[in-house]
Design a protein around this nucleic acid. Structure first.
Lengths: 214, 214
DNA sequence: CGTAGTTTTGATCAAGATCAAAAGGAGTGG
DNA sequence: CCACTCCTTTTGATCTTGATCAAAACTACG
């Protein structure tokens, strides 16, 4: 967030931010609670969860470093936000942030751009949920993770997944069994290796990408 | 858009808007084209289309009266926007609108709120694509249409669908055959009537809502 | 009345959900 | 260090849903 502000603005936003570390598993925001928290993700990964009318949990968004959490204009949170990997956050008091936005239009434009980017990514995700088969979903998910988990802006060849199989299912709209079977299929095909735990090694980037496109 | 602006702002935005009528079937924006058009929908319905990597079309959004079309900050359009029902638009030249936003922060806040609302709706939609079965998708779609097509803010008991079966499939991530079968099932169950053309009559609002929740 | 497009219906098939059990891994206490 | 438990993941077997292929019915329109 801080990147596109002028020096003066930046200092002002920084001044009202509180650095806070939150452990994996902690819930940052409960759906329905008053929307008290706004923050930038400095490190770590968080999930945005909605509960469907039938009780099933669905993950509608993932937050990576640089992403913004919270809604300045809604009184109560629409979704639960939970930390997946120990996270550092830069937390802003809602009132103070609103004040900064009132006084500094550049900050507001930044939030608008960010919201539009998130909308774009969410729509891409919709395409995947709607039309792709399980194999393509998993491949696309791994490609996305490899990209987003790589700090240097490239595509990581090896990384630890920030979530369980069941959570991957909640992201992709499939069951845990399907996720597991597709992982196995990719491993057997020699496209990835699964050295244990939540680690993933991408052995054949090109073939993985081809499956993701299907 | 105009509703939340002060009198002065409102007048200024109105002053740069050109009223334009676009016939059903016309494409307002082609994906990839320079993002020249920004507009408010005054009447009519439009669809936002993305083409998946396998060539399949998917509808990622519908635009109803009051909605805003266009992206001020992206150079080329990410999606195709096509008119479903003859539409009246209030078109703004991109440059002029940007200028208004630069000078009047209230207008920018309005766009931000709108973007967040759209994101919220898109995420609701994601839940549907991910977990619901065909019956629930169709029911939820009809409930949503009944609500959004009713000008007076309620739920319409009778309305004309603004799109073909095949387009409904592209919205819900199913095939045209599945859409048709589910419509028939709802009709046979006495929940809706299909008096011909694209007309739909909701006979049992409660049961429809119950199916949508499943 | 004939034609082109859309919608409905029918029959079959495959992908993935579901149910069920085995295997693997991490932590705890003997 | 091993045994035990709890939890996650993997694998297996079966069954349901919706996709696919195909044809008939309906609509709109010249």
């Amino acid at each position: 967030m801080c990147s596109a502000l002028g020096d003066g603005d930046l200092a002002r936003v920084r001044a009202i931010g509180l650095r806070r570390t939150v452990a994996a598993g902690q819930v940052l925001v409960w759906a329905g609670d008053p929307n008290a928290i706004c923050a930038n993700v400095v490190s770590g990964v968080l999930k945005i969860v909605r509960v469907a009318s039938d009780g099933h949990e669905h993950i509608v968004g993932l937050l990576f470093p640089g992403d913004f959490v919270g809604d300045l204009f809604t009184e109560s949170a629409r979704e639960t936000v939970q930390v997946l990997c120990d996270a550092d956050l830069c937390v802003y008091p809602r009132g103070a942030l609103r004040h900064v936005l009132d006084v500094h239009p550049a900050a507001e434009r930044l939030l608008l751009r960010r919201a539009l980017t998130t909308l774009d990514e969410t729509r891409k995700w919709m395409l995947m949920l709607g039309r792709k088969d399980a194999s393509a979903k998993i491949a696309a998910f791994l490609v996305d993770m490899a990209r987003r988990l790589d700090g240097s802006g490239g595509v990581a060849g090896r990384f630890d997944l920030p979530m369980s199989r069941s959570e991957i299912g909640a992201v992709l709209g499939t069951t845990i069994e399907t996720v597991s079977r597709q992982f196995t299929a990719l491993r057997v095909a020699g496209i990835i290796a699964l050295p244990g735990g939540r680690a993933v090694v991408i052995l054949d980037q090109a073939r993985l990408a081809r499956r993701a496109a299907a």
